[in-house]
Design a protein around this nucleic acid. Sequence first.
DNA 1: CTGAAGTATTAACCCATGTTAATCACCCGG
DNA 2: CCGGGTGATTAACATGGGTTAATACTTCAG
Lengths: 257, 257
Amino acid sequence: MPDTSLIHLLIRKLENFAELTEEEKRALHDAAGPVRSYGSHEDLIREGEQASGVAVVLSGFACRHKMLPDGRRQIIGYFLPGDMCDARVFILKKMDHTISTLAPSSVTTLSREAVLDITSRYPRLTRAFWWNTLVEEAIGRQWLVSIGQRTALERVAHLFCEIYVRLQSVGLATPEGCELPVTQSELADTVALSTVHVNRTLKELRRVGLVSMSSKSLAIHDFAGLRALAMFDPGYLHLEGEGLIKDRYAHTMLRTS
Amino acid sequence: MPDTSLIHLLIRKLENFAELTEEEKRALHDAAGPVRSYGSHEDLIREGEQASGVAVVLSGFACRHKMLPDGRRQIIGYFLPGDMCDARVFILKKMDHTISTLAPSSVTTLSREAVLDITSRYPRLTRAFWWNTLVEEAIGRQWLVSIGQRTALERVAHLFCEIYVRLQSVGLATPEGCELPVTQSELADTVALSTVHVNRTLKELRRVGLVSMSSKSLAIHDFAGLRALAMFDPGYLHLEGEGLIKDRYAHTMLRTS
DNA sequence: CTGAAGTATTAACCCATGTTAATCACCCGG
DNA sequence: CCGGGTGATTAACATGGGTTAATACTTCAG
C-alpha cells in the first residue's frame, strides 16, 4: 500500500468543484500508484514520449515547458501540489511538451487502467476531472493574455496572484504568503522576460510594498494592491464550487460507447 | 432541412483523424442546426454567457479573444472553415472569453442534444471530437511559445504557416496561398504587436520574398523558407491521420455513466 | 571551513518594438 | 462623381525590456 496520504490535496482541490463521497475519495486513494520522489529539475515526461498514466503532484512544484530548436524556452503551465495532468494525456501518441520538476517533488501516477475504472464507475469524479481540465485551459488562456498584453510588472503580479490563490485553494497559503520554490530565471521563462528584468521587476514590487520574494517563498504584503495592479480576476479558476456542471444530462456527454 | 452542405469541411477536417462511415457523416449532417450568416465583427458568444451548443464555422473566419479592463485585447485562437468549438463548451456555466467573426461567416450549431446523441451513438465520432479538442489545446501552447519567445518576424511567419497548413487540411489552400480576411490590426492583436510593427514585419516578409499579404489574402512565395524562419513544425496539428487513439480501450475513457 | 556552482543584484548600454501622427488608398452609399 | 470612413503605410521619435558583464550571495559537498 503506497503512502498516498498527500493525495488528500488532490481531493481537496477537486472538492472545489463538488463534494465527493467517502467512496469516491477511497477510490482515488486506491487508484494512486507508488509515490516517486524527484529532485529539482528532473523530467517526468519528455516531449515525444507517450504518457503512461496521469501524474499527480503531491508536493513540490513542476511545470510544462517547450523549447525552440535554438534553446529559447517557454514554461507553459505550473503543477502545484494537488494538481493532476489532464486525464486524457495518455490518449495522445506523443507529448508535445515536457513536464519537469522545478523543486524536489513527490509524484504519484494514476495508471491508465485506474483512470478508466474510476471514470466508468464514478460520474461525479469524472466530472471533477473535466472541471480540472477546463480550469487548466482557462489558465492557459490567461497566460496568453498576460504575455501578450500585460507589462512586465502586471505580468509578474498576475502570476503571483494566480499561484497564491491556487495554493490557497489547497490550504498551502497563509495570509502572509506561500512557498514559491522557483528561480528568477525560471520565472523569466514563465513570464517571457529576461532574468535581469525579472529581477528589476521584483525589486519594484518590493519597493511599492506589494510582495517580496525571498529564496523559495513569496511574502504577500498587499494582496488587494497586487490584484489591482495585475487586473487579476480569480473567476477563471472556478474555485467557488459553483457547480460548473449542473445539468443532469451533462454526465452523458462524450460518452463514447 | 437546413443547407449544411458546407459541413463537409468539418467532416474533412475530422477525417484527418480517422475515416468516418457514411452513417457517421450523415449523423453530422443531421445534427447541424440552421445555418446563420454573420457579417464581419459580430459576436457569436460573449464572455459571461453560457453556450447553447457547439458552433461550427462553415465559411469565413472567426476568433476567440479576451479583453483587459482597459481595452487591451488578445486574440487567443482562430476558427477557420470546418473548425468547431470544443464539444464541451456547454458544460461551462459561463464563457471566459468572447467568440466573434473576423469576416463574414456562416455558422451552424450542433445543439446540446445533438451532441449528446452523437457521442452516445458513435464512439469514433466522439474520439474525433476529442482529437479536435486536443489539437486546439496544442495550438494554444504553440501560441504561448510564439508570443513568449519568438521575435516579431518569427511570430508572424509562424502564424502564417499554421493558418496555411490548417486551411490546406480542409482543401482551402492552393500552392500559391490562401484567404486571410484579417486586418493588420487584428493580426496585431493576435501576435501581440502594434499595428505599425505588424506593417513593418509584413513589409520585411515581402522584401525577403517569403510571403505577401494583400487585402484579404496571403500569397505564399517560399513556404520552406517561411517554415524555416518560423521554426514551424506541423506535428502539433496532428494532421497525419496518425491514429492518435489507437487503444481499443480508449473509447471508454471518461465515460461518466 | 573551503571552494565551486548556481543564483541574485546592479550598472551601462543597446535595440526591438511601441507611439504619434500624417498621408495615402480603397470601398461604398448616395 | 463625391464624401466619409476604415485600413495601410511611413517617418520620427520614445521607451520597455534585452544584453553584457561585473560583483556578491547562498548552498552544499567534501
